[in-house]
C-alpha cells in the first residue's frame, strides 16, 4: 500500500553526501552470551548519507543500529560516532546520545507527559535550555511533522501514526546530526504508514544523516543512498538502490528480494 502512496513521486531525492565520515564500524563483533549476533561488521557512514538496512528477522539489523548509540554494547571491534570512540566511558556515551536521535518501532513516548512535554524534556534537562526556548523549538518541530494542534494532548489520546510523528519530533528537538530509525512503520496501520514515511522523506530531503531499518522498499528506492542487506549477523550486500534492486549480486539477496517484492 505504501508503494502506491509514494508511487506519485518515484524519482530518487537529491544526494547531499559530504566527505566527512560520521560513523565507523571496524571489525565489530557482538555476542548475546554465547550467541554471535554481529559478525565482522565493517561500515563507514558519511555525513548526509541515507542508509536503509533490510533483512530477515533475527539478522542483527536492529542490533547494529542500537550499537551506534550504545543501547547495546559491543564486545569486539571499534565503533566511532562523530569521531568519538564508543567504549565504556559514560560521558562519551551521553554526549553521543544527545547528538544521535532514535525512533523506535513501539514509539516509546512517555505516557505521563503531554506531547509538548515529551519534546521539551531532553532539551531542558540535557541541554539546560530555558523552558520558553524549548517550547518554541518543540512547537516548530511539531508543526514540521504536521501535528501542532496535538501539543497539549497525552500520547494515549493519539493515533499510532500521530504518536510516531511525535516521536520523530521529539528526537529532532535535540537537533541531532544523525537519526536512527528502528522499523518505524512496522507497528502502524497501513493508512498511517504513508504519513510517517512522508515525514521521513522530508527529513531526508533536508540533508539529515539517516540510518533506517525498514521493510518499506519503495521508501528505500526513493530515499536511500545505500541499501544494506543483512543476514545471520553479517552484511551480505550493500549497494546503491538501483544496483541493489535491479542487479543483486548475492543469491541470498536475490531470494530476499523475490520474497519481499512479491506482494
Amino acid at each position: 500500500m505504501s508503494d502506491e502512496a509514494l508511487a506519485g513521486s518515484e524519482e530518487h531525492i537529491a544526494s547531499a553526501i559530504s566527505d566527512e565520515i560520521v560513523i565507523t564500524f571496524d571489525d565489530v563483533n557482538k555476542w548475546y552470551g554465547e550467541f554471535h549476533v554481529l559478525k565482522d561488521i565493517n561500515l563507514a557512514v558519511r555525513k548526509g548519507e541515507r542508509i536503509v538496512i533490510c533483512g530477515p528477522s533475527g539478522s542483527g539489523k536492529s542490533t547494529l543500529i542500537r550499537c551506534i548509540n550504545r543501547l547495546e554494547p559491543h564486545q569486539d571491534g571499534h565503533i566511532a560516532v562523530n569521531g568519538v570512540s564508543l567504549d565504556g566511558n559514560v560521558k562519551n556515551i551521553d554526549a553521543i546520545r544527545s547528538d544521535v536521535g532514535m525512533v523506535f518501532q513501539s514509539f516509546n513516548l512517555f505516557p505521563h507527559l503531554t506531547v509538548i512535554e515529551n519534546c521539551t524534556l531532553a532539551p531542558m534537562w540535557v541541554k539546560k535550555m530555558p523552558k520558553a526556548e524549548a517550547d518554541e523549538i518543540a512547537e516548530k518541530y511539531l508543526a514540521r511533522v504536521k501535528i501542532p494542534e496535538q501539543a497539549r494532548k497525552y500520547p494515549g489520546q493519539l493515533s499510532g501514526g500521530q504518536q510516531q510523528r511525535v516521536a520523530i519530533a521529539r528526537s529532532l528537538c535535540m537537533n541531532p546530526s544523525i537519526m536512527l530509525f528502528d522499523e518505524p512503520t512496522s507497528a502502524l496501520d497501513p493508512e498511517m504508514i504513508a504519513e510517517v514515511l512522508e515525514v521521513m522523506v522530508e527529513l531526508a530531503e533536508s540533508g539529515m544523516t539517516m540510518l533506517c531499518v525498514t521493510h518499506e522498499m519503495a521508501f528505500a528506492k526513493r530515499v536511500a543512498d545505500r541499501v544494506i542487506f543483512m543476514d545471520f549477523g553479517e552484511i551480505v550486500e550493500e549497494n546503491a538502490p538501483e544496483e541493489f534492486f535491479g542487479n543483486a549480486k548475492v543469491d541470498r539477496t536475490q531470494l530476499f528480494l523475490s520474497q519481499i517484492l512479491a506482494h
Binding site: N69, L71, D94, A95, I96, R97, S98, D99, V100, G101, M102, F104, S106, F107, N108, L109, F110, L121, A122, W125, V126, R170, S171, M174
Partner: peptide, 20 residues
C-alpha cells in the same frame, strides 16, 4: 522501551529515573 527512550535521548541515570 521507556528506559531505552530515556537513554537514547542522552538522559543520565538519575535524570531518567526521576523524570521518566
Amino acid at each position: 522501551g521507556q528506559y531505552e527512550a530515556a537513554k537514547a535521548m542522552g538522559l543520565t541515570y538519575w535524570k531518567s529515573m526521576n523524570l521518566i
